[in-house]
């Protein structure tokens, strides 16, 4: 018994060993996290100057705060509905997408915010608002030029992008990115004229009904490949002729009935006219 205790005491750790161990473990975990964690988490506050943030805040207060709250904390609940969601942590990418596609500021409440061709802000103003929102809490950053550069995408990568699109996106946006209906008047918009930057931002921020595809779900390279497939129409030719909207058999049926049967009945009438 005594011998056992002595042996134990001989191997007893220094009282501070636990503290040192915990400190080391924390350092390791923190270091690993910093190294491995999605880039988004540490994004976007650095580049913006304090002036930009200040200008962005002014624009925010003038144009967005009515619904999103004076501190972007979200609007008040009116008749069971939140006027506007909290923008803390949505990142500059959200601002760039929502304002840059004209969806925000929202003209009126409807099933979902429609894309509007008239953009109310300059890109500089949008960037300033983005900087302000990003300064509140980390969030997805506006994609860099390398992330949007599709020139280096090989055919195999493009095919992989197309395959990922079919698995994750086509169920709402249709096989050709032409969009489709969702429930209760909501819809997945047509992607054919959407810019590479906005497609990328939509994937990382998940606007409206769309899920978020962060960099763990779809890697930045795959996102670039998807964009390459979507935006390079010349790389996915349609050798069959007119695509009649690329919406599947519904338009084909309409063509068969109107053009096919219509012309043929016309011909029958023409052939049958002579005697009667």
């Amino acid at each position: 018994m005594t011998r056992t205790l002595t042996a134990l005491s001989a191997r007893r750790r220094h009282p501070l060993a636990v503290v040192v161990l915990i400190a080391l473990a924390l350092l390791l975990v923190g270091g690993l996290y910093a190294a491995v964690a999605p880039r988004d988490a540490q994004a976007s506050t650095s580049a913006a100057s304090a002036d930009d943030i200040e200008a962005g805040k002014k624009l925010f207060l003038a144009n967005c705060a009515t619904c999103h709250g004076l501190n972007a904390q979200g609007g008040n609940v009116v008749e069971g509905k939140v006027a506007g969601p909290s923008l803390i942590g949505v990142g500059a990418a959200s601002v760039d997408f929502q304002v840059g596609t004209g969806r925000m500021p929202l003209a009126q409440s409807a099933a979902q915010a429609p894309e509007v061709s008239k953009i109310r802000f300059s890109q500089e103003q949008i960037d300033q608002m983005g900087a302000y929102i990003a300064s509140l809490a980390p969030g997805p950053a506006v994609p860099t030029d390398e992330e949007l550069d599709v020139s280096g995408v090989s055919d195999e990568q493009l095919a992989r992008g197309a395959s990922i699109f079919r698995t994750n996106c086509a169920m709402c946006h249709n096989f050709a990115g032409k969009g489709g209906a969702l429930t209760a008047g909501k819809y997945a918009p047509d992607l054919t004229d959407t810019s590479a930057k906005h497609i990328y931002e939509a994937m990382v921020t998940g606007p409206q009904s769309m899920p978020v595809f962060n960099n763990n779900t779809i890697s930045p390279e795959d996102k670039t490949a998807i964009i390459a497939w979507l935006t390079q129409q010349e790389k996915r030719p349609d050798p069959g002729g007119l695509t009649v909207g690329s919406i599947g058999p519904v338009s084909e049926g309409i063509v068969a009935w109107i053009a096919g049967i219509g012309i043929l009945i016309g011909c029958s009438v023409w052939l049958g006219m002579k005697s009667s």
Binding site: A162, R166, N174, A181, W257
Partner: peptide, 17 residues
């Protein structure tokens, strides 16, 4: 449309008329 795979489905999946 791409090759068949039981997991994806495209929006506007319709049969012929």
């Amino acid at each position: 449309y791409g090759a068949y795979d039981p997991s994806p489905v495209t929006a506007g999946s319709q049969p012929d008329w």
